[in-house]
């Protein structure tokens, strides 16, 4: 694709046709991207822009799925341990609650935020934005939500928790009977959805939606 450097006499109206690399500040002229294509910075190799192959309708459907799966992953027990006929299972909230009562409030707060509050906020905010983006409109509170989504960045850690559950199962397997519960399957599905959303360039919503004239 064409990434020719623009000349210095660019005026403000042409600003829309430019892209600035967020890792090295190099100015690029913007090119229309086909589905699945991505533009990389010629100097540092950062991804400038990514054109997702999925439309707003598809993304909304996936977000609704994510909400259902997330509810199941949070409410249902994850694994059950057995020892001498005694059984103990735990949901995400049991995990957070035990850490709080076991003198590790810092960990409890971290887990509650990164595994429950932030992911849930992200799902609801994205769902709200996409509901309007289907028809090219900007949802009420669009600006605030887009900035908040940007700030949430890496603070959702459900995928790390899934790996953590896997490690716990292997460790517990040495001493106990381990039985997987529905929660762990819901988490597996959630992880797939997270992987799909990781490839979506949300900043494009700024260009793909128009403010409604009052």
């Amino acid at each position: 694709m064409d990434l020719s450097p623009p000349d210095a006499t660019t005026d403000a109206t042409a600003a829309q046709s430019l892209l600035i690399c967020e890792h090295c500040d190099t100015v690029h002229r913007r090119c229309p991207l086909a589905k699945g294509e991505l533009a990389e910075c010629a100097r540092c190799g950062a991804v400038l822009e990514r054109c997702r192959g999925l439309g707003a309708n598809t993304l909304l459907a996936l977000i609704l799925t994510a909400l259902l799966v997330f509810a199941q992953a949070t409410l249902w027990p994850i694994v059950t341990l057995g020892l001498n006929g005694q059984h103990v299972d735990a949901t995400l909230w049991d995990v957070i609650h035990t850490m709080w009562t076991d003198h590790s409030q810092v960990v409890a707060v971290l887990a509650a935020l990164t595994l429950f509050v932030f992911p849930l906020c992200k799902i609801f905010m994205l769902g709200w934005l996409l509901l309007y983006a289907r028809s090219g409109r900007r949802a009420p509170g669009f600006r605030l939500l887009m900035v908040t989504l940007h700030r949430l960045g890496p603070w959702t850690m459900s995928e790390v928790f899934v790996l953590g559950a896997l490690v716990s199962i292997v460790k517990a397997h040495l001493y106990f009977d381990v039985q997987p519960d529905p929660g762990i399957y819901a988490y597996a599905a959630l992880m797939l959805l997270i992987t799909i959303f990781a490839g979506v360039d949300l900043t494009r919503l700024w260009d793909e939606t128009r403010e409604e004239s009052p």
């Binding site: 735990a90 995990v95 590790s104 517990a172 106990f176």
Partner: peptide
């Protein structure tokens, strides 16, 4: 951190 939290809740 999550491994410790999960094991604490389970065991």
């Amino acid at each position: 951190v999550f491994v410790v939290a999960l094991l604490t809740a389970l065991v």
